[in-house]
Amino acid sequence: MLDDRARMEAAKKEKVEQILAEFQLQEEDLKKVMRRMQKEMDRGLRLETHEEASVKMLPTYVRSTPEGSEVGDFLSLDLGGTNFRVMLVKVGEGEEGQWSVKTKHQMYSIPEDAMTGTAEMLFDYISECISDFLDKHQMKHKKLPLGFTFSFPVRHEDIDKGILLNWTKGFKASGAEGNNVVGLLRDAIKRRGDFEMDVVAMVNDTVATMISCYYEDHQCEVGMIVGTGCNACYMEEMQNVELVEGDEGRMCVNTEWGAFGDSGELDEFLLEYDRLVDESSANPGQQLYEKLIGGKYMGELVRLVLLRLVDENLLFHGEASEQLRTRGAFETRFVSQVESDTGDRKQIYNILSTLGLRPSTTDCDIVRRACESVSTRAAHMCSAGLAGVINRMRESRSEDVMRITVGVDGSVYKLHPSFKERFHASVRRLTPSCEITFIESEEGSGRGAALVSAVACKKACMLGQ
């Protein structure tokens, strides 16, 4: 009897593995994704193909990295998701002549009506938060230079001027797309009239992360975010950046690689679950690469896999709870928690219980395998993109072996128990001629924006502006 049951459990697990095998990517698959990513990057950089390229390769006008001589107080704003952060950054000489960066910050959550109302409502709310922060720190009387981390696709015309191309991540505030974001912020500050600010720089969160990590390690020339969304930036040779005049030196390019796949480059790798996630998203047909990796989508992918296993009578005796059938019910943090389970399955059992399920031991094991399959594919897909960037940098610099540091931020990278190990191992397999160091950014977005502002202020002083 026991043997029969054991055989049935083994057969069930084997069927589960057959279904989950769809998520496995072979090294040849990853090399294919990497080569296609490089081709799209090239198209994004070139003037004649930029418009139709899915990977936009947006110039950021960040050319210099901090040298350690900029000092002063800077205000930093960070808008990239449902939370908005205001930070005071003091850049100065530390002990023994070292450079020191001290920060104080406060988080504000953005109400739904500000995210989806008008641009005026959104930026009025942001300036209200700045006003509140300055009151708390008794700094209303000071006109501070301000660095703005704005983590949406922007076409820069200068370091302090950028046109919002399109909202992502659930934002829909009308009247912002096609307009200068810094102008919208300046107008809102003017409307309030109770404080003055000098907006000197606007950067993407990947750029802010790279600059913040450069402060720790001067070989950091790539910034990457794996959180709600997924994106990367890197220092490109100016001669390859056709959208900006000049051939000397390097400029940081914001790849906006989340949109890779929007022209069909990933079609052969998309599964039924991916198509369902895409169809029910706020932007169907867009940001397809990001939807395979980002935390906004990972939990939902797992939920759809679990429903398939229920329908195949391989999980929960073929019956799903009402909660499990509800879109968004299986949160991405559950994926991390399930994979963090120590082996007694308590954590998995508790999560499934909150979803109205009474799982068996085998159910718990199957749910864990589903989570591992989805998150491992995410790590491997992400590795193909980064390997594409790094191999490109090595080739354009004609280096036999390139040493490089990548600064990384984002909740999936930082909080998932195995993502970074799987990701690092896969990147290294795909970049055999590179020695890569990964560092995690601390308060990256805010500190990085302030350091970019410090560079901009120093330049302005040198130019006598």
Rank of each mutant, 00 (worst) to 15 (best):
V207S: 02
C457P: 13
L324C: 07
F330I: 06
L47W: 15
M37C: 01
L165F: 08
T362K: 11
R429W: 15
E120C: 07
R394T: 09
A384D: 00
A173T: 07
L164I: 11
V427K: 00
L276R: 08
T116Q: 10
D365H: 06
G92N: 03
G170D: 14
K102F: 14
I130R: 01
S109K: 08
W167L: 14
I130K: 03
T361K: 03
K142S: 08
P284D: 15
Y297E: 07
H424D: 12
G223S: 07
S321G: 07
V305L: 00
D400P: 01
Y349K: 02
F133H: 05
T354C: 07
V199F: 08
Q106V: 11
E272R: 02
H218A: 03
A378W: 13
S340R: 04
G295F: 15
C252V: 07
V199G: 04
F195H: 04
R392A: 10
A232E: 04
T431M: 03
H317M: 15
E440D: 10
Y61Q: 00
E245Q: 01
S426V: 13
T362S: 04
P111A: 03
A10R: 15
V452W: 09
F148D: 07
Y214F: 05
H156W: 15
A329P: 03
K346T: 11
Y413T: 04
G294E: 13
K31M: 08
V199Y: 02
L288G: 13
G410Y: 06
Q239E: 08
T149S: 11
M197P: 15
Y349D: 05
C129S: 07
V412F: 09
V226F: 06
V16E: 15
G264C: 12
S263R: 08
V181K: 11
Q98C: 09
S151C: 13
I130N: 02
L430V: 06
E399A: 09
S109T: 12
E300F: 01
E319K: 11
D3G: 08
M8G: 12
L77V: 07
V101S: 02
E300G: 02
D158K: 15
A329R: 15
M34S: 05
K296N: 13
F148E: 05
F148C: 11
E279I: 14
M115H: 14
R85S: 10
L2S: 11
S418Q: 14
S396I: 14
G72F: 00
V253Y: 00
V367I: 03
Q219C: 15
H380T: 12
E112D: 12
L58C: 12
I163R: 11
F150K: 14
E372H: 07
F269I: 02
A460E: 10
G264N: 04
Y234Q: 09
L451D: 10
I351K: 04
D113G: 08
C233R: 00
R377H: 02
K142V: 09
L288D: 10
L292F: 15
Y125N: 02
R36L: 08
S281P: 06
A259K: 15
F148G: 11
T209Q: 03
L307Q: 08
S360V: 08
D135M: 07
V199Q: 11
R303F: 03
L144C: 13
Q38N: 03
R36W: 02
F150G: 09
V222G: 01
N231L: 09
Q337L: 06
M37Y: 03
R392F: 10
V427S: 09
G193Q: 10
S398A: 03
Y413H: 07
C213G: 03
K104N: 13
A320I: 15
M381Y: 14
E93C: 11
T228Q: 12
L58I: 12
L134R: 04
M87D: 02
F123Q: 04
M41T: 05
E52M: 10
M121V: 11
R192I: 06
R325T: 08
V452E: 04
Y215E: 00
D205L: 06
S109E: 12
L309T: 06
H137S: 08
V253A: 01
R327S: 13
E435L: 12
Q239H: 01
V310I: 12
T361M: 05
V55G: 01
T206P: 05
H317D: 07
S127M: 12
L451W: 11
T60F: 00
G294Y: 09
D73C: 01
R63I: 00
K143L: 02
F419C: 02
V302R: 00
E279W: 03
S131P: 02
A329M: 13
Q38S: 07
T354L: 13
K190L: 15
K31Y: 11
S353H: 01
R5C: 11
E339W: 01
D365V: 03
T342G: 02
V305D: 00
E236N: 00
G295T: 14
A208G: 05
R377L: 00
L306W: 00
F152E: 13
G117V: 09
L314Q: 08
V277E: 06
A6E: 15
S396H: 14
E237V: 04
K143N: 01
H218I: 11
Q26H: 12
R428I: 12
I163W: 13
E196Y: 10
D132S: 06
C457G: 12
L276C: 09
L25C: 07
I225G: 02
S398V: 02
E268M: 05
A282V: 13
M57C: 10
D3E: 09
N254G: 04
D247N: 01
L75K: 00
M210G: 00
R422K: 13
P111R: 08
L185W: 01
S398R: 08
G44R: 07
T326R: 08
K296S: 10
M139R: 04
R403Y: 08
V408A: 11
M393D: 11
V244C: 10
A119H: 04
L288W: 15
E70G: 09
L243F: 01
F74T: 00
E268R: 02
E245H: 07
F423G: 05
D344W: 06
G223L: 01
E95F: 13
V86K: 00
T405C: 03
F152Q: 08
K346A: 05
R428G: 10
S109L: 11
M57P: 07
G318L: 04
E27K: 00
V199W: 09
L164F: 14
D3C: 08
D409A: 12
D4M: 11
M381Q: 06
T354D: 07
E435V: 10
V86I: 11
R358S: 03
N391T: 07
G223K: 00
L307F: 03
D132H: 09
Y108A: 02
P66R: 12
H317F: 14
Q98K: 14
G175S: 05
T376W: 05
T209N: 02
A379D: 02
L314A: 14
S263C: 11
E256V: 12
R333Q: 12
F260C: 01
A282L: 15
I390Y: 02
K172V: 05
I189A: 03
D363K: 00
E128F: 12
V199R: 11
R403E: 13
